[in-house]
Amino acid sequence: MFRTTDIILIAAMISAAGFTYMTKHESEALRDQVGALETRIQLEKDAIDLLKADWSLLTQPRRLQKLADIYESELALKPLEPKQVAEFDALREIPFRPVDAPVGDEIGELLRDETITGGVAQ
């Protein structure tokens, strides 16, 4: 009663249905994954926005000023004086040290100096 062609066609139909089902299932799974990722991306973006706002809050001049005032004595902070601003060209005009001067002694002198800068160990 069943001819070979019938069997082949039925097999083809079943496999086609199976394939379609598989593809659909897979695409649905992927779509879910995309949705989940999109939600996560949105969450991350929101978090970035929030962190940016947080950062600008933490770097407000008002806050930095307060911190500078608090640690003024501890870190020996002082407001910048106009005299301390110099350009590179101005530095060039400062004459070189005489070559034969005992450089080591000068550094030794500096260490004995009372003013302590950041570069000198206490």
Binding site: D46, L50, K52, A53, S56, T59
Partner: peptide, 9 residues
């Protein structure tokens, strides 16, 4: 480029 106003959720 310092933020002066922004939207937050």
């Amino acid at each position: 480029g310092e933020v002066l106003a922004t939207d937050i959720k």
